[in-house]
Amino acid sequence: MSRIAAKFAALRQEGRGALVTYLQAFDPDRETYRAILHGLPAAGADVIEVGVPFTDPMADGPSIQKAGQRALKAGATAAGVLDLVRSLRTLDDTTPVVLMGYYNPILTYGVEAFCKDAATAGADGLIIVDVPPEEADEVEPHATANGLDLIRLIAPTTDEARLPKVLAATTGFIYYVAITGITGTRSADYASMAPTIANLKRHTDLPVAIGFGIRSPAQAAEAAQAADGAVVGTALVDTLAASLDSEGRAGPDTVKNVLGQVSGLAQAVRAARKVAA
């Protein structure tokens, strides 16, 4: 069983949802990010999304755009990101790692080589924001051959007619986008999403994580309860950004503040037990 499937199965046994965290690799620099990454499992991250920086993140809001600029300035490359994943795997062999980014850096690396190297480094899945199912045929065979899940976003705009097509192209888990919009701009009423998620689940057995706009422990708990997990990204990136000096360099509290926030989110998610079905 893949790490992703095993993790969601274990959490189902526990009767709770997953906390999925997103930060961008190399933000604000490689070693600070490495310290955060290594600390995430103990802080309570159940699934770790590692952002692969790109100059033109079209689906991301200002916070994550700036994170990408810091990361690229710090020398981020796809190979460098995979090295960080490899270093996490010397310490942790159970927490799933999902690489999230845009297609062009992967295309440049070589899709086949990237999938192979990502799997070897210990990654478990890919979210390639700008590769919809219609364009997935050049990625899917290589991801599958290397045991990488292709996690897909399902948006409020994904209608019933389109849903089966997207679901059929998804493995690992489904990332339900709670708002129509870019990351970190607006929040939704996550507690009210249970019917939407239930409807989604009529079409799939995959776990569903809700993301976009989740900032507070309470929101994370609501989302994790309404679905199988809550994704928190921009709120963590903002905490990281607030700890930097005026030059964008890590401050003394950068690692501590980010991991502290993850702990707070994790506690709330863990306390939000699911009502037995």
Partner: peptide, 14 residues
């Protein structure tokens, strides 16, 4: 060419 866009846009592109 092609349609390399996020899922949110895909239904609208169609």
């Amino acid at each position: 060419g092609g349609r390399f866009v996020a899922e949110t846009l895909m239904p609208l592109i169609l």
